[in-house]
Amino acid sequence: MSLTLTVNGADHVVDADPATPLLYVLRDDLRLNGAKFGCGLGQCGACTVIVDGQAVFSCLLPAVAAQGRKVLTVEGLGTAAAPGPLQKAFETEQAAQCGYCIAGMIMRAKALLDAKPRPGEAEIRAGMQPNLCRCGTHMRILRAVRRAAGLPANPAVPA
C-alpha cells in the first residue's frame, strides 16, 4: 500500500504494509537512522520521534497512523555541521556516552520544551522519564535539557 508521510517538513510516498511500525519506515524506506530500535516494546525510548507535537515510540506506531500527521525526527532538528539548540546543549553537556539513546532523548526533550519552554525540575524529570539511558548519563541529559531551556545547570531538587 502507498502511504504519504510528512517527515521533517517534506512529503514522502512509501510502499509499506500499513501495520509496519513507523520506525521501520523511517529507517528502511526514508534512510533516517536517528531513531533506533531498542526494545520494540515502547519501554526504552530509543525510537522516540515527535508526531503532531507529541513524543511517541515509533516502534509501536503503525505507519498508517502517521499519515496526515507531521512527523519530526532528530534529523529535522539540525546537522552535525549546524546542530540545533537541543543537539548543541546535549553536545556541550557531553550527555552521550554510547549515543544509542540520545536521538530519542533529544526528541523527548524537544516535545517537552515545545509544550513548556521553562519547565520546573520535577516536570523535566517526569517528562524525560519514559526514555532510558543504559550508560547512566541521566544527570548529563537533565543538565542538557535545563541548558536548552535556559535554566540553571544544577537546581536544588525538592525532596
Rank of each mutant, 00 (worst) to 15 (best):
T6F: 04
V7M: 12
V7C: 09
V7P: 10
N8K: 03
H12N: 11
D15M: 07
L22T: 06
L26M: 11
L26G: 06
D29M: 08
L30A: 12
G38A: 04
G38D: 01
G40K: 05
G40W: 11
G40F: 04
L41W: 09
G42L: 04
A46F: 06
A46D: 04
A46K: 01
A46M: 10
C47K: 00
T48P: 00
I50H: 00
D52I: 05
D52Q: 02
D52T: 02
F57C: 03
S58R: 04
C59P: 08
L61I: 11
P62E: 14
P62S: 09
A65P: 07
A66C: 08
Q67L: 06
R69Y: 09
R69P: 04
K70V: 13
V74S: 02
G76K: 03
G78E: 08
A80I: 14
A80S: 11
A81N: 14
A81M: 13
P85R: 07
Q87L: 06
A89S: 12
E91F: 13
E93Y: 10
A95R: 07
A96H: 09
C98P: 08
G99Y: 08
Y100E: 05
I102W: 13
A103V: 13
G104Q: 00
M105R: 03
R108L: 02
K110F: 04
K110I: 04
A111T: 01
A111E: 00
L112H: 05
D114L: 01
E121R: 01
I124T: 05
A126V: 09
M128E: 10
P130Y: 03
N131W: 01
C133V: 02
R134N: 10
C135K: 09
G136T: 13
M139E: 15
R143L: 10
A144G: 06
V145I: 14
R147K: 15
G150K: 12
A153T: 14
A156L: 13
A156G: 11
